[in-house]
Amino acid sequence: MIEDVAGRTLVRAAMKAPYLERDEEHLLAIRWREKKDQDALHLITVAHMRLVISMASKFRHYGLPLGDLIQEGHVGLLEAAARFEPAREVRFSTYATWWIRASMQDYILRNWSIVRGGTSSAQKALFFNLRRLRARLANGA
């Protein structure tokens, strides 16, 4: 019950956060990269929490708490901020998507089953495609 209230509060806060224009995002990324400006990092991460929540909702079917998936996605978002290079002229959300997904997938692999899953790229791909393949087999396609 408390998790539902906290989750709704988090989602509401994320939806109220302003979108960043390309130039504003670029300037914030430079401030974070060059000066380690914590305010710039905060503005970038708050503006992209919608992305984290959206991606977390796509992994709900693994039975793990949505709040935990969001937290792991936030860790990925922070990793993306630490590694982002504004000089490449790529939007932060495009870059961060890969880090957020990787962080969530690693969390799922560590916690979805008591049986340890694979850690190589091929084993991860097999794990995340397994559900789709099972459904296809069950439908006789």
Rank of each mutant, 00 (worst) to 15 (best):
L43Y: 12
A40T: 04
T119P: 04
A14N: 04
L66Q: 06
R116S: 13
V90Y: 05
L126E: 14
D23L: 15
F128M: 10
A17L: 08
G140E: 11
L78F: 07
A102D: 12
A135S: 12
V90P: 02
L28M: 07
L137E: 14
R83P: 01
G67Q: 12
L109N: 07
A135K: 14
T45R: 01
D4R: 13
E79N: 09
H26K: 15
V46L: 12
G117E: 09
I2V: 05
F84M: 01
F84R: 03
M55L: 10
Q123E: 15
R110I: 04
M104W: 01
W99I: 01
L66W: 07
Y19H: 15
W99Y: 15
T97N: 02
D37A: 14
E34V: 09
A81G: 08
S54T: 11
Q71L: 03
T97H: 06
L64Y: 07
D68W: 00
V5W: 07
R134G: 06
E21D: 08
L78R: 08
E72I: 01
G73M: 00
K58Q: 15
S93E: 12
E21S: 12
Q123K: 12
A102P: 00
T9H: 12
V115F: 12
L109Q: 08
V115T: 13
T45K: 01
R131D: 09
Q123A: 15
L64W: 10
R12S: 12
A138P: 02
E89K: 11
A102G: 14
I100C: 00
I70T: 03
S121H: 07
L66A: 07
A82C: 09
R88T: 07
S93T: 11
N129H: 12
A87K: 07
L78Q: 08
Q123V: 04
M55W: 00
D68C: 03
S54Q: 09
R60Q: 05
G118F: 05
I44M: 13
S54H: 13
R101S: 10
M15Q: 13
M49W: 02
A29M: 05
R31N: 10
M15W: 09
P65Y: 12
W99Q: 01
D23M: 04
D106G: 14
A14F: 03
D39G: 13
Q38F: 14
E34I: 06
G117T: 04
F92M: 07
G118C: 09
P18G: 12
P65E: 15
V46E: 15
D23Q: 10
W32V: 07
P65G: 10
W112H: 15
G118Y: 08
L126I: 06
A82R: 15
S57G: 03
A80P: 05
I114S: 10
D23W: 01
D23T: 10
A17N: 07
H42D: 15
G117H: 09
S113H: 02
V75G: 00
L130Q: 11
I70W: 02
K36V: 06
L77F: 04
